[in-house]
């Protein structure tokens, strides 16, 4: 599954202001709500579902990257966004480092295959150091969009 199939480009955010876990999850979700990708009425419930998933083990996978996610019945297709923090966020990552790059993903519960294919694409690209570096250094949402497009077309 390509980025274009689940990353909502209008909700990409560079320069996240939050410095703590729940706050940054909230900031990313609110951006998806503000751009009409998620329903306002479901917002708190989705945030809580993501935080509950984090309690099982941080999705901060190291190297300054986190992939907070949940399955939620209010979405009909994998819905994701990308966020970049220049200051870094405390995320209890596996390597203890602050997180600068977020891929947030919400998937419909009845489509585990789609969820896996989105994670597969994210993880494949994140193994490319150049890809990660470009994203972390991005100054605008358009920069991110361009890097994702290049990855999709490679």
């Amino acid at each position: 599954m390509k980025f274009r199939n689940f990353v909502k480009t209008e909700a990409i955010k560079v320069g996240l202001v939050s410095t703590e876990k729940e706050a940054v999850v909230r900031e990313l979700i609110e951006n998806l709500v503000a751009t009409g990708q998620l329903q306002e009425a479901e917002k708190e419930n989705i945030i809580q579902a993501i935080m509950k998933r984090e309690e099982l083990g941080s999705t901060g996978i190291g190297r300054g990257i986190a992939v907070p996610h949940t399955k939620h019945a209010s979405v009909s297709e994998p819905t994701g966004t990308v966020g970049v923090s220049h200051t870094g966020v405390e995320f209890q990552s596996l390597d203890g480092e602050k997180v600068h790059l977020f891929f947030l993903l919400i998937s419909p519960p009845d489509r585990p295959g789609d969820h896996l294919r989105a994670l597969e694409n994210i993880s494949k690209q994140l193994q490319d150091d150049m890809f990660c570096r470009f994203l972390k250094q991005s100054k605008t949402a358009e920069d991110i969009q361009q890097v994702l497009e290049e990855a999709d077309n490679a």
């Binding site: 996978i61 596996l94 585990p112 295959g113 896996l116 294919r117 994670l119 597969e120 994210i122 993880s123 494949k124 994140l126 193994q127």
Partner: peptide, 12 residues
């Protein structure tokens, strides 16, 4: 590696 395992996209 968690990331490497995820690249398998291994379904049921």
């Amino acid at each position: 590696s968690v990331l490497s395992i995820l690249t398998l996209g291994a379904t049921q």
